[in-house]
Amino acid sequence: MSLVDRLEEPEDWKNDIKNRLSNTKIYLKTDYKLHIQREDECAYHCQQYALSDPKTPAFRHVCTHKHLKSCDRCDLFTTAIDKILEAVNSCQLTDKKVLLQDVQCSERQISEWKSHILRTVNQDEAHHDVFQNLKENQLLIVVDWAMKFLPHLFREKMSDWFG
């Protein structure tokens, strides 16, 4: 049973929230990476803004534009989370703390997924730039430790793992 189903809300409200979350998932899996740009007026799509660290000046970038636009597809997630939090806070269930914790954990995980997609797009652009600027006498060696060695660990027998 999902968190939304446990709430004491009408079925049409639950279906709307599920639809918003489903559309958010589809958007993040398909179109989100296509909307990310180096500079964009939507804060969710602006690489410079999203990759900046407001606490560390060396890693901070001040955009030359304002983030006045908002993407309706990015806002699906925030509005769904806001509605869920509002419903959880107003409900009379005994496991209210558990529900709040589940919502916060889920929100954090989806935000981390969104950040991962953003970093992937940024890294792909960096790879592309490096390949474009390679001289005739230069080469690039890419060592992907996770792909090369981690799968081997998961194929080992338990007795080998524990010695």
Rank of each mutant, 00 (worst) to 15 (best):
K66S: 06
H116E: 09
F131T: 05
L139W: 15
V130Y: 08
E8L: 10
K25G: 12
K33S: 11
F162G: 02
D5I: 05
R20A: 04
L118I: 15
I117W: 01
K83E: 14
E9N: 10
T120R: 07
L76I: 06
S111P: 05
V130G: 06
I26P: 07
V62C: 10
K96C: 11
V88W: 06
E41N: 13
I17N: 01
Q123K: 10
C63N: 01
Y32V: 10
L28G: 03
H116D: 07
Q101Y: 14
T24I: 05
E41D: 14
H67Q: 02
E9H: 03
Q109V: 05
H128K: 14
P54M: 11
S115C: 04
Q48W: 01
P57Y: 00
V143E: 08
W161C: 10
S52I: 00
K135I: 07
R108C: 03
R155G: 02
P151D: 00
Q48D: 00
H128D: 05
D53L: 02
S115K: 15
N23H: 05
V142T: 10
I81Q: 01
C91A: 08
V103T: 12
K114A: 04
I117N: 04
Q104I: 06
R60S: 12
A80V: 14
D160L: 03
H152P: 06
S22L: 07
P151T: 00
K33Q: 07
I117K: 02
F131R: 07
I81S: 04
T78S: 07
V98L: 11
K25D: 07
F162H: 12
R6M: 05
L28V: 03
H61A: 14
T24M: 03
D72T: 11
S106Q: 02
K69V: 14
W145M: 01
W161Q: 13
I84S: 05
T78V: 10
A87W: 01
R38W: 12
W161H: 11
M158V: 15
Q138T: 04
V130Q: 09
F149K: 00
T64K: 14
V88E: 09
F59D: 04
T79D: 10
A146H: 13
F59C: 00
